[in-house]
């Protein structure tokens, strides 16, 4: 057999250098390959979250309890806001697929209309996420408390309403007798978190001055629920009534920073272990970054549609490719919604 070819290569069966074995264009194929690699990144993040969650020995925060607020309506709406965000993303995915469908019919007007709707949906989602982050960072009225035995407890109840702060010892900025009436709850929580509440209940302000706190309505502590065991209290133990109020106040007036923690940052958070907030910021942040870049890409393609670039090319495959990316962002959110918020 050596020395001469025995078979003519059948040109119909070969790829001829321009035929794709997948019957798809180069651009679309590469978009799919990129999406697979991006899916591995998100898969890795969610699996990492699962690892930390399974390894943690305390009580992991419950999505329905952490995310139970709506703008202007306060709390008591478990996951409703996140569900609205999910719905928003699903709808903008639908408008995107309608844009792709219009493209397949060379319906330029349809593509323009649906692309625009998709971009608007994307902006709405980003805005919702900004609100959610802000809410997560600022936290609840009473925060989470570390009790005298080192255990960590969630606090149920409602915070005090304040009349004014009356300066009794001058600091760098305030004079004796100054009455402060602005932003009281926020300022008070700041003092609590910093351990700046003195034994008699007065607080040290930012500038070092000391002020007496005049309350309109005192804080009401319903119960403390132990979420991480300490020397005295076991996991899931519930402390009620006056005992709860006394222990909370004791921690507030201990003069130590971070005995009560409000909201979240990368070092600590009121919801649970430190990694909980870190994963929240990283996973939803990374996803939000994808949404943001998706909106930017959609806008660029939208201008292409307006200028008629794709129409004169004879097909709207660019819309289809950016659509793939946009659907992928929706797909990731479906998984984030389940594994971060629901289970």
């Amino acid at each position: 057999m050596a020395g001469h070819t025995t078979h003519e290569i059948d040109s119909a069966a070969s790829w001829k250098g321009k035929v794709s074995p997948f019957r798809t264009s180069y651009g679309k194929l590469m978009m799919w390959f990129f999406l697979v690699s991006d899916a591995l990144t998100f898969g890795g993040l969610l699996v990492g979250y699962g690892f930390i969650r399974h390894a943690y020995t305390g009580k992991w925060p419950i999505g329905e309890e952490v995310f139970n607020s709506l703008p202007f309506l306060g709390h008591g709406y478990p996951l409703v806001y996140v569900a609205l965000m999910t719905f928003l993303l699903i709808i903008s995915s639908v408008t995107m697929v309608l844009a792709v469908e219009a493209g397949h019919r060379m319906d330029r007007k349809g593509v323009t209309k649906w692309m625009l709707a998709t971009i608007i949906g994307g902006f709405f989602f980003l805005g919702s996420q900004a609100w959610e982050w802000s809410h997560f960072i600022h936290g609840s009225e009473l925060g989470r408390v570390q009790l005298h035995d080192g255990s960590l407890a969630y606090v149920h109840g409602h915070g005090a309403k304040f009349e004014s702060f009356e300066v009794v010892t001058a600091g760098a900025h305030h004079h004796v007798g100054d009455i402060i009436t602005d932003d009281l709850a926020h300022e008070y929580n700041h003092a609590v978190a910093a351990g700046h509440v003195l034994a008699d209940g007065s607080i040290k302000l930012h500038d070092g001055s000391i002020a007496k706190v005049n309350v309109k309505e005192v804080a009401h502590i319903d119960e403390l629920i132990i979420r991480e065991a300490g020397g005295e209290y076991a996991l899931d133990h519930i402390i009620k009534g006056e005992e709860a109020a006394r222990l909370y106040e004791e921690a507030v007036r201990a003069g130590e920073a971070n005995r009560v923690v409000f909201g979240a940052n990368l070092q600590q958070n009121e919801y649970g272990p430190q990694q909980y907030a870190q994963f929240f910021f990283f996973i939803t942040g990374f996803h939000g970054f994808h949404v943001f870049s998706g909106v930017i890409i959609n806008i660029l393609i939208f201008f292409g549609v307006l200028r008629g670039v794709y129409h004169s090319r004879g097909h709207y495959e660019m819309v289809e490719k950016t659509g793939l990316y946009w659907h992928f962002v929706d797909l990731v959110w479906v998984f984030v919604f389940t594994f971060f918020y629901l289970v």
Binding site: S25, K28, E101, E317
Partner: peptide
């Protein structure tokens, strides 16, 4: 090149089914 991009085109009647 082979324009696979054109293979996804469809008419109005088929579009209705897809929608």
């Amino acid at each position: 090149i082979v324009e696979y991009s054109l293979e996804t085109h469809h008419d109005e009647a088929h579009g209705k089914v897809i929608r």
